[in-house]
Design a protein around this nucleic acid. Structure first.
Length: 459
RNA sequence: GGCCGAGUGGCAGAGUGGCCAUGCAGGGGACUGCAAAUCCCCGUACGUCGGUUCGAUUCCGGCCUCGGCCUCCA
């Protein structure tokens, strides 16, 4: 079945056709590690993780790079504030990022290039741009000359006049053109810097991605992703740099951009201050539920984040894991995900529609009375879950992961349950109900099933 | 100001020219000692005004409202 993806550049869905089916390449802009990342930052990680899983499923080799920006003025500021070298800050928050994304079931990309480890590649690309007449050095800076690239503005759909009319670009006196942007800038002695032909300095924001893509993936990549806010200027500039550095070779097959996460309908953003960090969210909600909540809206749509949305996601997963729990003793057969499910994902990653198919599977599983059919449905449900990055843990672990161990004395709960079952055996239902009320007081919900009494914490 | 998006039932959120999304919550039923879980059924949803059409939530146009980018930003 064909995979169709929306290309920001062409503004329509396109058939995904990798340049080399034996080596599919994808690059996604990762975090700048100067602090805790918020749930909005997790969205592209999760969304493109689903795409990565789909691609891996159908191509022999997928090289997926997601960078870590570890040199940046905000990092410098954070390091200065703490009086430490920048790598103390960046390694700390890179680790937190990894741990958090792990909790969201986000697979590690094939490579995670760090900006500071690619300074030579950046310098080389800058030199290439100068040699080809697309960049110029002035006063310790190197600037990309925007008028030298005819197609500038195609990705973001804006022309130069619009941008100048906007007039919020910094018009430094040394710029040949107001739209020119920095490839390299000088560092004062108190700032991190690297030697370069243009003096000691540090890279501009956009060059790292271009240089690292070139170094690890090649001149042309199949997919480039990131948040919607990166379209301009970041990706527009990347596109210009890379294309010009390569003498006009096509840079990216399909540009993909995820919509924002909002809080009360307003973009979640550090500068607005309405953020909830992934790290914090994970303290009260399982990562898998957060992942489900993120995927419950189509990736290009805005997604309003709230306690209610995560609670709904958690309850939905309770039901799905409940269905799997019923067949915990049945060995699943090896299955592919159902076609309707796959078709939904193939349609520009329509995860909400895919979820509807997962629900249908769970319902069928709950209804089935035939062991062979159950084994098949279980296999399909697990296969579908694997593609979305959910439902892969043991149901008992999912239900146990709640903070129940912290909140109650497990032995006491089990003693009460045993006492209640004793009472039930002798049909002393008044006593049984009394014990249940006691359990209820502890926040414990019980469930009598054919294979015994199960319990879990109420929300 | 320029350029983009979006407005769907109590909530979240797909989608479609005429019929079902799905989930959560709620109501009814089955099952159960009772619960819980599960299954079945239910609620006359598509911002607004026009246009096209036999028929529009879905296509076209106006309007209103909201959000985003144009500056660091996933």
């Amino acid at each position: 079945m064909p995979l169709t993806l929306y290309n920001t550049l062409s503004r329509r869905k396109e058939l995904f056709t990798p340049a080399d089916p034996n080596r599919v390449t994808m690059y996604v802009c990762g975090p700048t590690v100067y602090g805790y990342t918020h749930v909005g930052n997790a969205r592209p990680a999760v969304v493109f993780d689903v795409l990565y899983r789909i691609l891996k499923d159908r191509y022999p080799l997928v090289v997926y790079a997601r960078n870590i920006t570890d040199v940046d003025d905000k990092i410098n500021a954070a390091a200065k504030k703490d009086g430490v070298p920048i790598d103390v800050i960046t390694s700390k928050f890179a680790k937190i990022w990894h741990d958090d994304m792990g909790a969201f079931n986000v697979l590690r990309p094939t490579i995670e290039p760090h900006a500071t480890q690619h300074i030579p590649q950046m310098l080389r690309m800058i030199q290439d741009l100068i040699d080809r007449g697309h960049a110029y050095a002035v006063e310790g800076h190197v600037l990309f000359h925007v008028p030298s690239f005819e197609k500038y503005g195609a990705l973001s759909g804006r022309n130069r006049d619009d941008m100048i009319a906007g007039a919020r670009v910094e018009v430094a006196p040394y710029k040949k053109d107001p739209a020119d942007f920095v490839l390299w800038k000088p560092s004062t002695p108190d700032l991190p810097g690297w030697d370069s032909p243009w003096g000691r300095g540090r890279p501009g924001w956009h060059i790292e991605c271009s240089a690292m893509i070139d170094a690890h993936l090649g001149e042309t990549i199949d997919i480039h992703g990131g948040g919607h806010d990166l379209i301009f200027p970041h990706h527009e500039n990347e596109l210009a740099q890379s294309t010009c550095a390569h003498g006009g070779t096509r840079f990216v097959g399909i540009w993909m951009h995820n919509g924002f996460l909002t809080m009360n309908r307003e973009k979640m953003s550090k500068s607005v201050g309405n953020i909830i960090s992934s790290n914090e969210a994970l303290k009260s909600t399982p990562g898998e539920a957060l992942r489900w909540a993120i995927l419950s809206a189509h990736y290009r749509q805005p997604l309003d984040w709230s306690d209610d949305s995560t609670l709904q996601a958690k309850r939905t997963l309770d039901r799905l894991y409940g269905a799997l729990d019923q067949v915990a003793d049945i060995e699943e057969t090896d299955e592919n995900p159902p076609e309707a499910f796959v078709a939904a994902l193939e349609d520009d990653l329509n995860t909400p529609a895919a979820m509807a198919e997962i629900s249908a599977l769970a319902r069928a599983l709950n209804s089935s009375t035939d062991a062979a059919e159950k084994a098949k449905l279980k296999g399909q449900l697990l296969a579908a879950g694997a593609l979305m990055g959910v439902l892969q843990q043991k149901p008992s672990d999912w239900f146990a992961a709640a903070p129940k161990a912290k909140l109650v004395d497990v032995a006491e709960v089990e003693r009460l349950i045993a006492a209640r079952n004793e009472a039930r055996k002798t049909r002393n239902f008044a006593e049984a109900d009394r014990v249940r009320a006691a359990l209820d007081n502890l926040g414990v919900l019980i469930e009598d099933r054919a294979d015994g009494t199960k319990w879990r914490m109420k929300e």
